[in-house]
Design a protein around this nucleic acid. Sequence first.
DNA 1: TGCAGCCAAATTGTCGACAAAATAGCATTT
DNA 2: AAATGCTATTTTGTCGACAATTTGGCTGCA
Lengths: 225, 225
Amino acid sequence: MVQAVQPITSADKTFIQLRRDIVEGEIPASSKLSEVELSTKYEVSRAVIREAINRLESCRLVERKPNVGARVVSLTPQGLKELYQVRESLEGMAARLAAVNMSEEEIDDLRALLDTHFKNVKEAENYYQEAGDLDFHYRIILGSKNAQLMSILFDGIYHLIRMYRVQLGMAGPRITTAFDEHRNIVNAIANRDPELAEMLMRRHIQYSGNVHQENLTKNSAKSIS
Amino acid sequence: MVQAVQPITSADKTFIQLRRDIVEGEIPASSKLSEVELSTKYEVSRAVIREAINRLESCRLVERKPNVGARVVSLTPQGLKELYQVRESLEGMAARLAAVNMSEEEIDDLRALLDTHFKNVKEAENYYQEAGDLDFHYRIILGSKNAQLMSILFDGIYHLIRMYRVQLGMAGPRITTAFDEHRNIVNAIANRDPELAEMLMRRHIQYSGNVHQENLTKNSAKSIS
DNA sequence: TGCAGCCAAATTGTCGACAAAATAGCATTT
DNA sequence: AAATGCTATTTTGTCGACAATTTGGCTGCA
């Protein structure tokens, strides 16, 4: 028996499209979201747009004021810092839980993934870089087997962080060092060492967060001058 | 000049009312939420109900399937466990950040609060217990000065945890020991010791989580027999 | 009896219209 | 000229109706 694909409503599609446009910067940060304007642009009724905006609000990608309207959130160094703090905490916990809950098979797959990425990265320096990093974190979060954790990270934090990365052009170098960090984390998980796995993951995210912070202040200084 | 109160829309009120009814169990767990039924019950249009349900979904209090409808989430031991794992992680981080970001005045206030609660608890054993505990955690999360953290905890996790507590009747005793734990956490924050504050907070939540877990399994065993 | 397909009822998804509120511009006053 | 108050316009909030989809039950057939 084939699993029937879940039907996607118009509101779903509009939400996903809108989210994409906001994250990728086609709808710029801090800009106002007019319901009528968007409903003509995306060719759906205002009700659909309203539902999409509501969902975007609960992702914290837009902010709404009653009777006034919705704006895309504005990007601030403070905001990015806060995001990374939450991410560090949650993914640290994810690594801790993964060290307990991941199956041996999942761990083997994760190792294989790392090898593949390593080869690809050596060949085409930074093409696979972001995708590889994402894959890695994605699997560990899945490995935590904690639905709340997954929901908060995948539906919320990750889109926000990506928004910062795309719009402030923060392609962290750090390729080879990040790779060693990834490998150490997998080893900790394979050794069923939750404390170490958490600690390594938290450090790993702290480092990448710091890099982004620096890029951000550098870039905003540039754009001011 | 007086700060104007933010206008509250019908959808806001309905959302808050619905959330209350779900958390307090007046709308039982796992029950279906019919839009027409609710719109007659709360005397608002279906559009308002839909918006409220959408927001409840992003709080993870209800689950929706396209073209089928929304159900209140079901309460499972696994679900409670996952919630406490996330809570431990996030509030641990909150305590860590509070140790850095809370002002001296806020710390003094927190100390005063603890004293007040201690007296009240001694007088009327468990009346102030829950409110006191809530107050304490609330202030530390505020003290983190991290908007993401606050939003995830206040808007999401806390209502869900309360739902479990109310509906599965988990009034943890643990009054005096919890008090000592609270005091130690405040001391760590006052000493500007982030690592210790985080560790103590995480333990504190682990303990209370364990108590609730036990109550839960006990109660569900009871209700089965 | 069991099962497949179909039909009817109920439920959700979408839409356009109206009501209420906020905003912007203009006139008036000091 | 600046500030205040009013009015017109725009924008959001709410509603009821229609369309699309699912669900439950019925009929007919093997």
